[in-house]
Design a protein around this nucleic acid. Structure first.
Lengths: 336, 336
DNA sequence: GATGTGATTGCATAGCTATGCAAAATAGTG
DNA sequence: CACTATTTTGCATAGCTATGCAATCACATC
């Protein structure tokens, strides 16, 4: 029975082997430190031999910067989030930061778990979940940790945010639907408490009214597939069916298309118009070919990362809005 | 101009305020430590007032356990991975562990980035990417960090693995296709170097031969959508079209269905059989309704987590195989 | 060779918490 | 109340690295 003795070598061990001081070892691994090429070589050789790697925990403790970024994501069932995570980790990585991840929507459990991330002294927190108690954000603030919201506006003091241009998108979509002659227009909301969903709805409604139409029918899909399907059924079962639906995100729009086509034999783009929001890659799959408003993910994330990494002015909240484009596809393109 | 002084309170500050020693503060936050209810209350009150939270970096440094688990994921475009990450973080969280995540397939860049995770003294590494240099795994090993492969078998000494039953699945699929009268059967491989793809192919081929058939046609889809589409086109453009395709994962199978239906006007299940592997949620979307072999995600991840958290016997590699089921859906269900 | 200059090096300490050990407080018993 | 058994507490240290400071070195210049 062998007890595995985790005898991880420390800087001191390397120092002894290389015949130098521990400081020298530290400097050998610190970029731009004052050390001669010769000793650095000696140190590196010894380090290699022992399999030494500097302990980032100790380093972080001392420096007061952990190089860790906490990321909180919403519903992973929606392809938007994994994609966002992917680009996020890649960009952070390029700047030498690691990502501490948490997935899930807000609840008691989640809050405490996210707060645990603070104990690791994350350098910043990026919140991408659609719902999140803002008391949480406040506590992060209090802990002196910069918070950046992506795709959600928050008025917590000193929290920055990066969002797509919901107003712009909703307006373009309203105009597009009216221009194409759709008459009975519906809106499918996401999670009711989410600012994203509310903003899109508000701007959409305003634009329709400005174009001389009445308020859209309204249904709630909770930003997930099951919810989107139920909401769509609700719309199509009633007597006065809509002839076009703007869904607050692509993920629900795809669910809506499936329901229309396979449960009601309505062909999207021909019998009913469907529009989404986000322009996730799936939106252009031939089975959906969804008209939607794009959220430029790289830009969105890029701004968030920039916010997080710029040491300057983190005291002041910056709210960035990134414009996208209306992407016309066949889910509404009919010559109606 | 206010310089933001990040004056994070330490245990000593709390101790002073509460009129106790620093040890008492530490014990107040350590579960099961020897401390009276009275002093704990005093400490907690003081901690609350100052907004103190124990520094996990220092704690980890001292304890030699960081409570961090490194997770490496492959192509996030495949819904299997986000889903896996979601269940993984939730399960780890339930055990008080945080997840350090890296996404991307193997390359020089990725390797060094993953090695950086070791500097944080992660308690273990879970590797779910389909491709990964095994020299990497070896170096982790050398660093004394337990490595668990999910969905990939590796023969690196002392690395455990958890995989679905590729042989079982491939056999069932072969039998199913033959039973249903399909004649010209093809296999769409994933990434050629991946053990997963190879195992499925080998078992599939063997089973077909055992059933008196010849080796399947073969095409490579690289486990991603673009690759799957191209591979499918390749199959359908040739003179001797297959009448059934087993794709090494659902993600490619969905791409294959789209190509068949929208580019070649072939209706899956009627004109051509398509089978996948994984049973991701999308497989049951009505537009695909894919026959597939299920990989029970919760079980898979559950075993991986168990492997990672059981302190005992991490010296010995354990290889776990989780059986799934053949899920029959309309993409092959035709009365052929 | 003396002197000055800049580059390297080592010493000692800080950063924050957990824990073994001995001292002190408390509870328990007769 | 005396005395033992048990809890609770504080002291001091360890865990690993980065860095200010002073000492040392290498080197060039005169």
């Amino acid at each position: 029975m062998t007890i595995s003795v985790k005898n991880v070598p420390a800087a001191m061990d390397v120092a002894r082997l290389a015949g130098v001081s521990q400081s020298a070892v530290s400097r050998a691994f610190t970029n731009g430190a004052s050390i001669s090429a010769k000793t650095r070589a000696k140190v590196m050789a010894a380090a290699e031999e022992l399999g030494y790697r500097p302990n980032q925990l100790a380093r972080s403790l001392l420096r007061g910067r952990s190089q860790l970024i906490g990321v909180v994501l919403g519903n992973m069932e929606n392809p938007f989030f994994p994609l966002a995570l992917d680009t996020l980790t890649k960009q952070l990585d390029a700047h030498g930061h690691k990502t501490l991840v948490f997935t899930g929507e807000a609840n008691q459990q989640a809050d405490t778990s996210i707060e645990d991330m603070l104990n690791y002294r994350v350098d910043a927190l990026i919140l991408m979940a659609t719902t999140l108690s803002s008391s949480l954000a406040e506590r992060c603030q209090a802990a002196g940790i910069p918070v950046v919201f992506v795709n959600r506006i928050s008025h917590v003091k000193r929290c920055s945010s990066v969002i797509g241009d919901n107003q712009h998108g909703a307006r373009l979509i309203a105009r597009h639907l009216v221009d194409n002659g759709y008459q009975r227009i519906a809106f499918m909301a996401g999670i009711e408490t989410s600012s994203t969903s509310r903003d899109r709805e508000q701007a959409f409604t305003d634009a329709l009214i400005a174009l001389g139409r009445s308020k859209p029918m309204r249904v709630v899909g909770h930003f997930n597939r099951t919810g989107g399907m139920q909401a769509m059924r609700q719309l199509l079962e009633q007597g006065d069916r809509p002839d076009a639906v703007f869904c607050a995100n692509d993920h629900m729009a795809m669910a809506a298309i499936d329901v229309a086509r396979y449960e009601f034999s309505l062909e999207p783009g021909k019998d009913i118009g469907v529009v989404g929001f986000d322009d996730i890659p799936q939106a252009q799959w031939p089975g959906y070919d969804l008209t939607t408003y794009s959220q430029p993910l790289h830009e969105l994330i890029g701004h968030a990362v920039e916010r997080v990494l710029s040491q300057i002015n983190l005291d002041e909240a910056v709210h960035t809005v990134v414009k996208g484009n209306l992407i016309l596809r066949s889910s509404t393109d009919a010559n109606y």
